[in-house]
Structures are given as C-alpha cells and as structure tokens.
Design a protein around this nucleic acid. Sequence first.
RNA 1: GGCGACAUGGCCGAGUGGCUAGGCAGAGGUCUGCAAAACCUCGUACGGCGGUUCGAAUCCGCCUGUCGCCUCCA
Length: 484
Amino acid sequence: MAEQKLYVYNTLSRKKELFEPLKPPFVGMYVCGPTVYGDAHLGHAKSYVSFDLILRYLRYLDYKVRYVQNITDVGHLVGDGDEGEDKLAKKARLEQTDPMQIAEKYTYTYFRDMDALNVLRPDIAPRATGHIPEQIAMIETLIDKGHAYNVDGNVYFDVKSDKDYGKLSGRSLEDAESGTRVETASDKKNPEDFALWKKAGDDHLMKWNSPWGMGYPGWHIECSAMSSKYLGESFDIHGGGLENQFPHHECEIAQSECAHGKQFVKYWLHNNMVTLEGQKMGKSLGNAISLDEFFTGNHKLLSRSWNPQVIRFFLLQSHYRSTTDFSEDALEAAETGLKNLHSMITTIEKAEAGTGSKFDIEKLKSSFDSALNDDFNSAQAIAVLFDQLKTLRKQISDGSSPANLEEVKVMLHSMIDDVLGIWPSESAGGNEELTSGLVELLIEIRKDARTNKDFVLSDKIRDDLKELGVQLMDGKDGTTFSID
RNA sequence: GGCGACAUGGCCGAGUGGCUAGGCAGAGGUCUGCAAAACCUCGUACGGCGGUUCGAAUCCGCCUGUCGCCUCCA
C-alpha cells in the first residue's frame, strides 16, 4: 500500500505544507481553550470539534500526540485595550459570587458540553491562575533580554524589539500605525506594545504578588508560558479560532520566540467562524446560541432540541477553514443525512460475512485517508463513506455479503468511531433486551392482525410505536424495526 | 483607512485546467393492504466583465457583493 502523506494548511506560510513533526512519532499540539465566564456556544463547538478531528486523525496515523488546551480563568478584560474590568470578575459581580466559582462552574459546563459532542478531553488542561509563577518567570526573561519594560508596575512587551512581529498575521507595524483605530496615549513606548503584567488596584479581585508589585498577567502570556512548560519551547501544532490570529497568536509568537530564541510553533492552524444569518456568532455580539440551548431546544431561534451528534456531524460536513452558516434547515438536512448513514452502518454491523466478492477495503481506506490527508477534509471523507458504503449495503441486501465483512467492520469502526466520532450511539435506556422483546411481541400481534386483514389494529400498532420512536418496516422476510 | 478571506444547482457543501463530489429536499418507477425503508432513474451548477489556453467554474486582472481581523472573542 502506498504511503500517503498529510498536508496541512499553515497560516504562517499561507500554504498547504507537508506535515513533518519535529520529533516523530511525537506530536505536540496546543489549542487555545475557552475563557470560562459563560456557556460554550456553537462557535466553540466548531473550533473544538475541528481540532478534535485533527487530534483523532493524527492518532489514527499512529502519531503519539500530546494535546494541551488551556483554561483561561483570568486576565481577559471586558473593555477596549488595556482598560476595563476582568470578565470573570464582572460575571462574579453579576452573579454575586467569587471569580473562582465562576471559573469552576463554566469549566464544568464546558467539558460537559464537549463530552456530549464526543470531543476527546485534552491530555493536559492547564489553568492560567495555576501558572502565575511560570508567567512571571517568562516576563522576567523578556525584561532581561530587553524585550519588555516596567512602567510603574505595568510591564509591556516592546514590539519594536522584535523584528519578526507581524509575521503570522501579515501586518506590519507601519500598517498598524497608519490605521485609524490605534488608540491614544498611555504609558507605553509604542502604541502597539502589549501588556505582559498589569498593576492591580485595591478593588481588583484577582491579583498576585510579583517583582513589579501586586497585579495580574496580560492576555497573551499564559499560552506562551503553559505551552512551553508542557510541550517544550518548540512544538508542532498550535490551533485556535481565526479571530485569535491577531493579536493573540501574534503576541504569543513574539513572547515565546524572544524569550527562548527559537522557533515557537511549526504549524499554525486556524478554524473559521460559525455565522448566524451571515454574522459571526459570538458571545460579545449577543447572537450566540449555547450548546446547552441546542441540546434542550430552549432558545427563541430554535424550534426544537438537537442531538449533540447531529451538531457534530453538521460541523464535520463543512471544512474547518470554511465558515459554517448555521440554520435549522441545514441542521435538519444533517440530521436526516446522519440517520441514513447510521442506518447503513447498522445494516452492515448486523450482517454476517458471506461468500460474496470481497469488498475493496484498500480503496475505501485510501480515498478516506486522502480526503483527510488534504488538510483534514472531513466533508470529503464523509462523502467517501456515503458513496462506498452504499455499494456495500447493496451487496448485503442482495444476499451476497462479502467474505471479508469482518475486516470491513473493523475498518469502519476505526474511521467512523475513532476518527470522525459519529458512530451510532447505543440506545440510552440501557434495557435493550426488554425493549426489543416487547417490540418483537407487538410485531407478532400485528402480524396476526395483518393476516386477518385487521388493518385498523395493525396501523395503530405501527403508528403508536412510531410515536415512541420505533419505526416498523415490513419487508419480504418479515418486519424489522429501528429505534431512534 | 490597513490586512485577509469567500462568492458553486431549491438548500447545505467538497473539489478540479478537459472526465458523476456528497448530503438534504423534489419528480417518476419497483416493492407494499397502505406506509416506512431499500433499490432504479432524473438536475448538467460554479457572482459579473475581460485575459491566458486547443479548452476555465478551476489560472491572471478588474468589478460587484458578503464576511472576518485591526478591541475581549473559538
């Protein structure tokens, strides 16, 4: 079998590049996690489902991946620039509680919702407040190397000391200076300098002692400090939402490369946005629909609840670098499509190997792999499944089940369960035997009714079962059923 | 104003210099007591205008439109 190669789109070069880890078979991957001051919404789902697919595919390719995703529980401000209230502190004030309680609460709901979406947990989920010493140490290094300066308890990164500043986002300092939105005077040397450490006032809730007095870390330093702690000073993949490209990731690069004197990250991957009626969905825009609202249907824009797996499938049906425009119509189409895919899988799972001609596993695998090798094209991979499994199902229903069916099943598990994470879920009730026993009994009764041409009764059984989510299907060899 | 994306059939959504994406919806048919499911058949799309080419929806230019970043944000 010809070894295929993985190509990934690297924001640094704006090109697809051959993926070659720094120290194969190990891969270090860092993805910017959420700021935990509110429920995760569909936009978060797109990002974390995208990187979940990337993680799963890398593991499918036998890379030994260490996946780190931070939890930001301090430091991001509500207002413009460097002024304003800490988001967690604000939420704590509104909910009349402590910032750490807010962080705990929304860390819990974040993982709860990601679990529902079948997003694998990161190997390490470091919290910003748990790494204040590391951040302080990094800031000290930057000051020692002349890349940062302290002004009365505020420490800033001096962007002019970094000739590479702007290489990720493709913007130069000149561009920034000529822009109309660069704001005004402060104690910075250059308006583009960004805060590494901020002085805290007496009323500030979250603050720590430092060489520069009581304060709290700036917005970008946590990712630099924690990624190097757990993945080393250079690592393979850094991911995040497109909107973090600038300034967040640009600043991370500046801090890390100036502190360590070596390349920070080899491949930068950015997922695109979820839009709602053409507008970016975002917490601060007020148009976000939370995942919990999707799962419960409790939102004015939703007519009903949506299964987490449908959300995952819906997201995987578009490429991670494309925007995904949300609508209930599109979700509904995804739901039906997923149901049909599941029905194919179930048919295949229930079938036994026969004497029919062998199913071409190599072809399936190579077309599935080459879709994902092309910058993780999950939409294409799903199309491959629909296309080729249809042939297999036909072979089975024609009574010439392939001789190598068991191998096919193993392959399907690895592609649909391990990589895509959309395997049909086992019915949640748990009492499957009883349920199917009861349904079989009703089918028997209905069969008698049909023999007696009592269609009123037989239709009542079928219709009432459908109400309960059990679909009866009359076939040549008797009646079969499926449970939603 | 600066930087950067994207524009595909009714809808969602991949992709490629010439050969069917796929899904959903829809139409007809087979099957069925009627359904459902399954199976078969059907759509010849790629914003506009130029250019390169034997040939472009795919490459280049311009235009139009939409969106993102430049402020916390997945």
